[in-house]
């Protein structure tokens, strides 16, 4: 490992909040991947004899109105949230990076056209756009990921374009031109690897945003459909019983809070670690 990455890790881990965020992100990841082995219950098994039980040694987060174990459903819900977060952000990063690279590298009318497209996309109130589109399609987790991704790439496109503009005039890019390197080679070997750091930050913060959006959609009943558990639809069910079964709302709510907070902490940690000048 080169000194560059070693320095990066040292700075990142010295930031206590970022390190804590990373730890939480890893814990969530492990929980969701190993969900079936972590809890003895089936997230969908209805048990009419154990309805709305408060948290106990057996049911850590209590049970819901159908007798399902809330801890199990929250852990399986993490699978959905992470999947949505990563796939949606993956789509946004790929689309945004390609558009930013093309706009910044070729400039001129191509740049103007693509940047006006960005401006137009930014004019839409994203959440209502998503609501409208989902209303026309069947609610499905795949549509949700795609729509969140396709409405979230503009920030990445602007970041990448700005990086490309500053990298394009650097001597190592000129050197590659003098050597006769093709445009594709210059873009992918010389510009892209140097433009990715801010994208990494933006993507990490974007995961948090995508998870929030998915939760909100599921809460409104147009996201992930029951019985598949998602933090948003557990909350929806919980709101009807909130007066006498607080655990139904509290735990999925906490899960959302902790997840979004930890991705934000990691994102900010990466940003600070990438830019040593900001550190005192």
């Amino acid at each position: 490992m080169s000194g560059y990455y070693k320095d990066f890790w040292r700075r990142f881990l010295n930031n206590r909040l970022a390190a804590a965020g990373l730890l939480l992100v890893i814990v969530l990841f492990v929980l969701s991947v190993f969900a079936p082995w972590i809890t003895p219950f089936n997230p969908d098994r209805i048990d009419a004899w154990h309805v709305l039980l408060p948290p106990s040694g057996t049911h850590w987060f209590g049970t819901d109105e159908l007798g399902r174990d809330v801890f199990t459903r929250v852990v399986f819900g993490a699978q959905v949230s992470l999947k949505v977060g990563f796939v949606a952000v993956g789509i946004a990063v790929v689309v945004g990076t390609v558009i930013g690279l093309v706009a910044g590298f070729y400039g001129g009318w191509v740049d103007s056209l693509l940047m006006r497209l960005v401006d137009i996309m930014l004019c839409f109130p994203t959440f209502f756009l998503i609501l409208a589109v989902i209303a026309m399609l069947e609610p499905s987790i795949w549509y949700i990921m795609m729509i969140i991704g396709l409405t979230g790439w503009m920030g990445v496109a602007r970041l990448v374009r700005a990086e490309v503009l500053s990298l394009k005039g650097r001597d190592f890019v000129l050197a590659a031109r003098v050597l006769g390197a093709s445009d594709l080679r210059i873009i992918f070997r010389h510009i892209l690897p140097n433009a990715l750091s801010p994208v990494l930050v933006s993507a990490t913060l974007g995961v948090a945003g995508a998870i929030l959006t998915e939760s909100a959609l599921s809460f409104l009943g147009i996201g992930v459909q029951p019985p598949t558990p998602s933090w948003g639809n557990i909350l929806t069910a919980g709101k009807d019983y909130i007066e006498f079964a607080w655990w139904l709302s509290l735990f999925p709510g906490l899960a959302i809070l902790v997840t979004v907070l930890s991705y934000n902490l990691v994102g900010e940690g990466i940003r600070d670690a990438l830019d040593p000048r900001q550190k005192k």
């Binding site: 650097r170 001597d171 190592f172 000129l174 050197a175 590659a176 003098v178 050597l179 690897p193």
Partner: peptide, 18 residues
């Protein structure tokens, strides 16, 4: 492009850092 090469002024910006 093969027979004509260039050497640049700033050695800190003429090599790709990655």
């Amino acid at each position: 492009r093969r027979e004509v090469q260039m050497i640049f002024q700033d050695p800190f910006s003429s090599l790709n850092p990655r």
